[in-house]
Amino acid sequence: MQKAFGIIELVFVITLLLLCITLAKPYQNNQTHRASQYLLQNILYTKNLALTQSTIYTTLSQSKWLKDMFPSIAQEILITKPMLWQIQFHLNGTYTKNSFSIYFDTPRIAQTTHYDNRPMAGDLIAIQGNNLRCISGYNNTNIADFCKNNAETSTRLQESYGVNLAITHQLSCKENKTARIYFDNQGKPYCGKTPTPLTRPFIITLSKNHHQKTFCILPYTGAIKKGEICYKI
Rank of each mutant, 00 (worst) to 15 (best):
R180G: 04
K188Q: 13
P219C: 07
P201E: 00
H211W: 10
G137T: 00
K208C: 00
G122P: 07
E152M: 07
L165N: 01
K174C: 08
G162W: 03
M120H: 15
L171G: 10
Q128G: 11
I127L: 14
G137C: 07
K226I: 10
R200L: 15
Y161M: 03
R133W: 09
C147G: 04
R200K: 15
T205L: 07
Y161T: 00
L165Y: 04
C216P: 02
Q128W: 10
N139R: 12
T205A: 08
D184C: 05
Q158C: 08
Y161G: 01
F183A: 00
A126Y: 04
T141E: 14
A166T: 08
I181F: 07
N150K: 10
D145F: 13
M120L: 14
G129E: 14
K148R: 15
N149E: 13
N185M: 08
D123C: 07
G187H: 07
F183Q: 00
F146T: 12
A151F: 01
Q170N: 10
L218H: 04
N149Y: 13
Q212D: 12
T155E: 06
I181D: 05
K177C: 09
K177S: 14
N185I: 03
N139L: 12
C191Q: 05
K177T: 08
S160Y: 11
P189T: 01
Y220E: 12
T178Y: 08
F183L: 06
K148D: 09
H169E: 13
G187R: 06
K193P: 04
C134R: 05
K208D: 03
A126S: 10
T214H: 04
R200W: 08
I203Y: 05
G129W: 10
N131F: 02
F202Y: 15
N176H: 12
L165R: 01
R156N: 13
K225E: 13
I224G: 01
K148N: 10
D184K: 02
G222P: 03
K148L: 10
K174P: 01
T196S: 14
T168M: 12
H169F: 06
N176A: 13
I181S: 04
T178M: 14
T168P: 06
I127Y: 09
C147M: 04
K174I: 07
N149K: 14
H210Q: 15
T155K: 05
T178P: 04
P189M: 05
D123E: 09
F215N: 00
K174S: 14
K174N: 13
C173K: 03
P219S: 07
D184S: 04
T168H: 12
Q186P: 04
G122E: 01
I135Q: 03
F202H: 00
N176W: 12
M120Y: 13
C191E: 04
T205G: 04
S172R: 09
C134H: 01
C191R: 00
G222V: 02
T168G: 12
N185L: 08
K226H: 12
K213C: 05
R133H: 14
